[in-house]
Amino acid sequence: MASGVFVLVFGLIGAFVRVPYVAIGPGPTYDTLGNVDGAPVIQINGQQTYPTAGELRMTTVSLNDQISLFGALGLWASGRYALAPREEYFKPGESDEQVQQENVKEFQDSQSNAEVAALKHLGYPVKVLVQEVVSGSPADRLLSAGDRLLMVNGKSIAQEEDVRAALAGTRAGQTVSLTFQHGNDAPRTGSLTLAANPDPKQEQGFMGLQPIDRADVPFDVKVSLQKVGGPSAGLMFALAIVDRLTPGAMVSGEHVAGTGEIDEKGNVGPIGGISFKVIGAREAGATVFLTPAPNCAEAAAAAPSGLKLVKVTSLDSALTALEDLKAGKATPSC
């Protein structure tokens, strides 16, 4: 009788009690040159676009949270999932909604960075916006997030590096002028007194703002994916934008997948979950996988048969690799 009760209790615990782990596995993939729910993943309005061919497929990782003991064991035993402590993905006290909001912001930032990187590669201009203003800083009394910076300390601002260059040699207590534009308002000029820099390695005065490059073009680029988070789709978005805005098919019928965080300068950074992404890519029919250089070793250890790994470090290197693939030339491999 007692053993029967024990088995029942254990069964109830295993079936209903949640364990502090998450299960990670291959997630859905999306062709950034294709459609999702009837709408193009990449929409460009107000500018001529060109036909494309083949696929440029972004990859994702699935994360199963709030799993039971039996559920966790079943997912692990399937061989397609790995278990990881929940605190590696959810900060203590952080709600699922907060995590989702962070993921959405990272995804939106990756879209913006991809747009800037792609359009800069194609020779389009950029503008410098205030991404963030530090509360209580000198800039907090003059600027708002989203304002466009035109001049700082008497120097014209064409890219974000110009802001730091304009402050070179300044000191706390020094007054500098700024010309900026808020929305569609006329440009304004004001001044602020620099504070001491909170970074001991930086000697120049501190304004208290974070500049960021954004595209300055008379057309719109929109990404229509929903319920996808994180920054790792940036490279594939940038490639799709370049492909749509240039004559000739970039991949000529090839099924190319890939991943990689991208900054506005086109540098490609490492991402998480690469071992699951290569599996998801191959299952979706990809034969080529664009792999951030720092992820190469992990990707090579997990890549399924029939998937060629191409090592990339930047948007330019990815574009060169795709041109070489199309021409039958050798490409950097992992």
Rank of each mutant, 00 (worst) to 15 (best):
Q181N: 10
L192G: 02
R171K: 15
G146C: 11
A165D: 14
D185Y: 10
K201F: 12
E203G: 15
D199R: 13
D199V: 10
G173E: 03
K155V: 05
V176T: 07
A145D: 06
L167W: 07
L167P: 11
G169L: 06
Q174H: 02
G190K: 01
T175V: 13
P138M: 03
N197D: 09
L143H: 03
A139I: 04
A166M: 02
D147P: 10
F206M: 09
I157Y: 01
M151W: 13
G136W: 06
R164N: 14
G173K: 02
P200D: 15
A158P: 00
N197F: 07
Q159T: 14
V176C: 10
D147S: 11
V152R: 00
E160L: 13
S191L: 00
I157A: 06
S135G: 13
L149P: 01
A195W: 07
G190L: 00
G183H: 05
Q204T: 13
V152W: 01
Q204R: 15
F206C: 07
A145L: 05
D162V: 07
R148K: 13
G205M: 06
S144N: 13
G146E: 07
A166N: 05
R171I: 04
E160H: 09
A166Q: 02
D162E: 11
P200T: 13
Q202I: 15
K155E: 11
I157F: 06
S191H: 07
T175W: 00
R188P: 02
T179F: 00
A168W: 10
A158H: 14
K155T: 11
L149N: 05
G205I: 08
S156A: 14
